[in-house]
Design a protein around this nucleic acid. Structure first.
Lengths: 191, 191
DNA sequence: CAGTATGTTCAGGAATTTCTGAAAATCAAG
DNA sequence: CTTGATTTTCAGAAATTCCTGAACATACTG
């Protein structure tokens, strides 16, 4: 591997990171290389740069395609398949969020819903189902939020993120104001 | 494993999910069992319920402790160590977010910053560094948002999530209104 | 059609990770 | 200090995952 040092460092790091997720090291490296490249790469380019076997690269690219993380394209006058990543990092974030949701969250939600249909048989069962209900509620809220912001254009999403928790603080102030106006006390721990 | 069916289904599912992340199957199952249990469990309880070797359970609990996902406690009159998960699912979400950040995001940010200090040597290098800058910006924004909402109390966080993208739409409306007031056109693609 | 370039599949070897049992360490209680 | 209960460690067995090379498939070219 005779990559420029910056690229090499990134590729290696990404490989390690990949293996902390479901993705294996070589697939992570292939993706990182494509992400940094200033032109579409074909399988042989990747073999040349990373030194994996041709078949490994082929399988890695296949996997990245199932994740929709790379796009196949043909260069004029070249029969070989070339691959790129989307230019826009926000686009990549959106795709990742969608794919992980499809693969991890949705099956979990469906399992929780199935299980919660059953009648608890024992006291312990009842407790367990209560826990699963809590979990279902939290996951639903989080994914609901994701669904909601997903439809925003990038600039809006960015603005929203920059706003951060301030929105909530405005909400809080408003509520406090309302309490004053309506002469109620701020809600105590109990009420 | 003679668990009630709802618990068994959840434990097995969680094990599989765990292995899609860095966590291995047995550790995932141990965690799921503790999460559902209505009382603290000791290592031998877990051995009895899941059928792993004692030493495997011991190591699994160690790993869960490093993730701060389980808490050790002692029951009166029992010398054995017992384990629980936090009662509050939001608390669990917060811990997970912090730990993953510490283990995955922070090292990535520091690598990107390091690499971006170097002067690009070639045109391709320059492009690669540009990509890394884009990535750094996106990650910074996302983690900045997380830092910001992390400090909100649960109820505020929940309110914020329920609000979803509506905040952004209010923002947009406001901006459009401002454009009208100041007699500017809505910003075009170019300007 | 033959020949060549390109892409895919897959059996099995290599590497890694997981899991276990046995031994060692720790610790409370007598 | 000794005993027994509990937990930890760790070498290596077992299981899993990864990777490769060779064979095969496909499709373009002349």
């Amino acid at each position: 591997m005779d990559l420029p040092p910056a690229t090499a460092a990134f590729v290696l790091h990404f490989g390690e990171m990949g293996s902390r997720w479901g993705i294996n090291r070589t697939v992570g490296q292939i993706y990182a290389l494509l992400f940094l490249s200033d032109r579409p790469l074909c399988a042989d380019d990747i073999v040349a740069q990373l030194g994996f076997s041709r078949s490994n690269v082929s399988m890695g690219l296949k996997e990245l395609e199932t994740w929709r993380l790379v796009k196949l394209q043909h260069l004029p006058g070249d029969r070989r398949e070339h691959f790129t990543t989307p230019d826009d990092v926000w686009q990549i974030v959106r795709i990742l969020a969608e794919e992980r949701r499809k693969r991890e969250i949705d099956p979990t939600l469906s399992l929780l819903r199935d299980v919660l249909m059953q009648k608890p048989a024992t006291r312990a069962d009842e407790h367990a189902q209560g826990r699963m209900e809590n979990l279902l509620e939290v996951i639903s809220l989080l994914t609901g939020w994701m669904d909601d912001v997903k439809s925003l254009p990038d600039e809006r999403l960015i603005a929203l993120l920059k706003l951060g928790g301030r929105v909530a603080r405005v909400l809080e102030a408003t509520e406090r104001f309302q309490d004053i106006v309506t002469r109620r006390n701020r809600p105590s721990k109990k009420a």
